[in-house]
Design a protein around this nucleic acid. Structure first.
Length: 298
DNA sequence: CACTTGACCTGTCCGC
DNA sequence: TGCGGACAGGTCAAGT
């Protein structure tokens, strides 16, 4: 069962790592090449080993760990990735709630291990091996094709509802859920928060983008920001494998209105929540609150 | 070009 | 208890 990091989960990991990693110098590196870490051993020796961590950033669902070597460790967690920091001396005393998780690392899902000079470690675990970590010159990261094509960050100040309307026009003939999941339209939204925001705005996920009114786009914009912010406040969503930089699970799922709540009552009207398939993805809706107009039913 | 489908992997759950 | 198939929160390449 997957457990996937979207913007709030990656942001939570980013905040933890940015608090824990800067100042640490890489002493040793073990990596599963090329699947999870395609760089050569020569690159690792030259640009990673001996480098110190400057800062940790996030763009969309990508983590960027900047190093003093002028290189950046670019990491995508995809469906089941975790980045967990373990410093037995400094952060996890006996009886700490994360001892059980951290104590057994590395395990069979560990793809990369960075050992730091003070004895602490950063583990990149990834059960399904979809995720990757790669070392790139810091000033070329934004040239990576998929990063260059990313849409705006929804939580940046310039992201108004009018910007959302303009971005959605790129996918005018597709359904609104596919458009929200398209990272070139908008960065960071995945299956959970697309479902939650569409429920909040009372829009059926199969509605064609061109059929969504300006008023509905305003409402969708408001719901997207609210759900992303709430989830960041809760440390993200954990159904299964997601944990933050210290091995903590997130608690957003307690607040989910429809996601993985099929068969339970809609919190707004009591109608039984349904699960369907839209854009090839499991999709959760309230069939009463989120209706397709007759003309759109195909 | 816009959009949809399949592939990438492993683990788990559900029905027979 | 065993086995096959569907499915899992992401993204890209290949197809229509």
């Amino acid at each position: 069962m997957g457990d996937m990091p979207e913007l709030p989960e990656v942001e939570t990991v980013k905040r933890g790592l940015d608090r824990l990693l800067p100042g640490h110098t890489v002493a040793s590196v073990k990596f599963d090449s090329p699947k999870s870490f395609p760089n050569s051993p020569a690159d690792v020796n030259q640009f990673l080993r001996g480098a110190r961590v400057l800062r940790v950033r996030r763009r969309a669902k990508v983590l960027l760990i900047d190093l003093t070597s002028g290189y950046t460790l670019v990491t995508h967690l995809k469906m089941t990735g975790q980045l967990v920091f373990d410093s037995p001396k400094e952060h996890f005393g006996a009886g700490h709630p994360n001892d059980s998780l951290v104590a057994h690392l590395p395990d069979k899902s560990t793809r990369v291990t960075l050992g730091f000079e003070d004895g602490s470690s950063l583990f990149f675990n990834d059960q399904r091996k979809f995720g990757w970590m790669r070392l790139l010159p810091t000033d070329t990261v934004t040239d990576l094709p998929f990063i260059a094509k990313l849409g705006p960050e929804p939580l940046e100040p310039g992201f108004t509802w009018q910007v959302l309307r303009e971005r959605l026009k790129r996918r005018a003939r597709s359904n609104v859920k596919s458009a929200l999941l398209d990272q070139t339209v908008l960065a960071g939204v995945g299956n959970i928060y697309a479902d939650e925001a569409l429920w909040g705005a009372k829009i059926h996920p199969s509605t064609l983008v061109g059929q969504v009114s300006a008023r509905q786009i305003q409402r969708l914009h408001q719901e997207l920001l609210a759900v992303l912010r709430l989830s960041i406040d809760q440390g993200g969503s954990s159904n299964h494998t997601y944990v933050d930089a210290e091995g903590n699970r997130g608690s957003y799922m307690k607040f989910a209105n429809v996601f993985r709540r099929d068969g339970q009552p809609c919190p707004r009207c009591g109608t039984t929540i349904a699960k369907l398939r839209v854009a090839g993805r499991g999709t959760h809706i309230c069939p009463n609150c989120q209706r397709l107009q007759a003309a759109q039913k195909i």
